[in-house]
Design a protein around this nucleic acid. Structure first.
Lengths: 231, 231
DNA sequence: TGTAGGATTTGCGCTGGCGCAAACAAAGGT
DNA sequence: ACCTTTGTTTGCGCCAGCGCAAATCCTACA
């Protein structure tokens, strides 16, 4: 049985009494996932929905042709795998632990009861899904209208915002991320990402190494991201 | 006051008693929108949510740079402008009547009450939003991985499926649609769409004219849509 | 300390489809 | 019947970024 303090104060459970929190956790079980392991697979039947307690999770969609696109990164404290709330029988994507993770899982059957018993939980969940829809639209717009350099800049800024850690050199992305990963976020190739980032390293905008990105000059990066395609 | 039969049998109101339907409609008002008029504007404060009774509505997102992307077409019988269900204060896109339309609008304030009083209505709405999220992801994947020709083929097949009308020549898209519109659905230019479709006309796959598209050979189009990029 | 495997960098050539421009065609208004 | 507006077609040149290939660099593990 989990301690109620691990979920107290998280948006989905805001306003719940200690007893309520215990009730919520009664149906949950927590597990650890080592780095690079799958939490659920695309098209697998949905049996659980999840809360990430610690770590970072990558959500990836794969086309029939085998091409991958990273649809988002999940940060600690966020819900994911909410297929049940969307009335889906299978997960639409694969979830991979980007680092060692601690996850709480509820069986799908718990969702309806929790949403009914704690309306704020249901409302929050649906708002979350609504926000994902917005974010997805926004990213889609960006992917199809902006140039590669701007897309990569946007992706890094978003990562820095969500999962940035201040260091002496600048803002470091808090989990290992490869050129390939960035390519899959921005719909390009690892070669192009590498070229773009090498150029930025030259200009002292970022420092990057193996699976590591530090943003030295966020403002400079923002200028690149906001650049008009044809002035 | 609207007659209850106009909404009876529609998925969101499935299983409601005649009295319930009357109650639902008490808070609604219906209006007509002439072709090309806006039903709501992007970033405008959300005051209503809508049901399309008759016609076709185009939902368009505009970037700060002024580029447009058509995020979907709404068909008769579908809800749209559900910003309130996603907890948003402004509409994330603009809705334009693609033909003369009849629309039912409810004030946002009605949403919470309806969702509480008729759980099936709430569940259906949230499922709908979940489906939009899926569709958007799928389209995004397609836009960034497939070639222009395949994207246009997919777009036409989707349109034919949702809003196709059988004619002597083939399946005709049920509303006026320009090359520019198709370009905004597939993230390309009207010039390229024109070239692609001229080639298809040559091969007797489609017949097209001013604001008009007829799919003569859906199977041939499907072959193009499913084509592997690099065999 | 050596080494295998993964990650990254970089050069080079090619091409899909965009930008530009101009002509043409179909509606609709007067 | 004419003119304006709006939509469509087509030719041409160009370039961002991909595919391919090869070298190099880390890092973990033996």
């Amino acid at each position: 049985m989990l301690d109620r303090t691990v979920i107290a104060g998280l948006p989905p459970f805001e306003g719940l009494e200690p007893d309520d929190l215990d009730h919520v956790l009664e149906q949950a079980r927590s597990s650890r996932y080592p780095r690079d392991s799958a939490i659920f697979e695309q098209d697998a039947p949905t049996e659980h929905f999840f809360l990430l307690l610690d770590g970072h999770v990558r959500v990836v969609r794969i086309t029939p042709e085998g091409e991958q696109v990273i649809s988002r990164y999940v940060n600690a404290g966020e819900m994911f795998g909410l297929a049940v709330a969307m009335g889906r029988a299978t997960y639409p994507a694969r979830a991979i632990a980007a680092v060692d993770c601690v996850v709480v899982a509820w069986p799908n059957s718990a969702f309806a009861e929790l949403a009914r018993r704690f309306p704020s939980f249901g409302a929050n969940t649906y708002r979350t899904i609504g926000r994902w829809l917005q974010d997805t639209h926004t990213r889609m717009l960006e992917l199809v209208t902006a140039q590669v350099e701007q897309r990569v800049a946007h992706a890094l800024l978003r990562l820095a915002h969500q999962a940035g850690r201040k260091t002496a050199e600048g803002i470091e992305i808090d989990f290992p991320i490869t050129r390939q990963d960035i390519a899959e976020m921005t719909a390009t190739t690892l070669h192009t990402v590498s070229r773009v980032m090498s150029a930025w390293e030259e200009k002292k905008i970022v420092i990057s190494g193996r699976q590591r990105v530090v943003i030295v000059d966020p403002h400079g990066l923002m200028l690149i991201a906001e650049q008009r395609p044809r002035p």
